[in-house]
């Protein structure tokens, strides 16, 4: 599931739980699902990828791009 879809799903579950639509046993399933999704999203946000910045060269090759801090 994409990150965006996960957040959407979490929002849906929270709403469903809060407006009392869910039966008790369903509530536990939903609760578990939401907590898992939140954990996953949290983890994804915390995983700072290396070489976040890339550059496409003339030949179409992707290389790491380091910002030249001196450039003005």
């Amino acid at each position: 599931m994409k990150f965006e879809d996960k957040i959407k799903k979490i929002e849906e579950i929270v709403e469903k739980l809060e407006n009392g639509e869910a039966a008790l046993d369903e509530s536990f399933d939903l609760y578990k699902k939401a907590m898992d999704l939140i954990k996953e999203c949290d983890k994804e946000l915390n995983e700072v990828k290396e070489n976040v910045n890339k550059i496409v060269t003339e030949s179409g090759e992707i290389k790491a791009f380091e910002l030249d801090e001196d450039a003005k």
Binding site: E44, E47, V48, K49, V52, N53, K54, I55, V56
Partner: peptide, 10 residues
């Protein structure tokens, strides 16, 4: 949003 990848097309 540091988890996002950027690709520069100079």
């Amino acid at each position: 949003y540091p988890i996002c990848e950027t690709i520069l097309f100079p």
